[in-house]
Amino acid sequence: MSNLAMKNLSDDEIIRSVLKGNSADFIFLVDRYKNKAFSMLKRMLKSTEDAEEVLQDCFMKAYNNLKTFKFESKFSTWFYRIVYNSALTKLSSQKRRIETEMTSVEDHFNLESEYNSAEIEKKDVSELIHVTISKLPERYSAIITMFYLNEMTIDEISEAMGLTISNVKVMLHRSRNALRDLVLKTKLAEEIL
């Protein structure tokens, strides 16, 4: 089958082809998900090198465990679960704070402490939002990336992260509110809102 035809195949069809022994076809899944998963990892791990290393590991895990994929859920949800758990493992190995273990959904975070007020005032709203996603705690930045960039539903995010739907919603709302509070402090916001 030509490359163009393979690119148009669904994830499930590509997986079936890989399972039949065409291991090189796995490249089509890699090309489909590498940048989105990388964006999520980069925001969670706050390091390009770590993100790329963990992503490589995630694809290897996905390839090695492809036989266990049940075709009941989407490949993307299954794969992002691997990505999310691998990121948590990496953070754990770095002995960094892991929210999953140390904090509950009820905990608060303060993004404003990341900037001084003069700095916030000067910033462009769009740039401020994009930069600040990486400053959110790991799980929150993961939710924002999965919801807005990967266009996953709340149900899919909850499956990928192993959280309840209501917890995912609470965390999504909390992230938006924190970003909104920052936006309200910019000069531009004063003019446009």
Binding site: N35, S39, K42, V125, S126, L179, V183
Partner: peptide, 17 residues
């Protein structure tokens, strides 16, 4: 402001490996 955040979050771009 919340709507502005929501709209802007949809414009996040992918990072490339």
């Amino acid at each position: 402001a919340l709507k502005l955040v929501h709209t802007n979050l949809f414009t996040i771009t992918e990072d490339e490996v």
